[in-house]
Amino acid sequence: MNEQEEFFSPNHKRLLSIAVWARYLAWVVLVIYFFWAIGTYLQEQNMFMYYRAVGSTNHSNFIGLLKGFPFYGLSVFIEMIGVFLKGIVYFLVLKGISLGINMIVETDINYREQKGGTQ
């Protein structure tokens, strides 16, 4: 049992723990950015409702405004997509970090095994 415990150093365990955290965090970040993208749309909608309340716009609803000004609609859509794409990039980076750490640990363990166990 002691031999098994010594085979993995505290650094291995620490790295594997970071890898697990990074893997789960990647999904959390992806979900957060998905909702953030939706939030971007809602923020624009709230702005529209404010402008309507103060009488700065003649449009009765937000969708009507987007249809009336397709360029503005496109900019809102691009803004949303931008937030979501950023989330995907962070997701991939975190997943890559997790995989990279696991591969480093695996490589080190392989070399240890070849040298005949603990060092």
Partner: peptide, 16 residues
Amino acid sequence: LAHILRILMEMEFRSR
């Protein structure tokens, strides 16, 4: 990052 991951995998493979 993509290249680093590929290289790490190759290093791991060669260490088996």
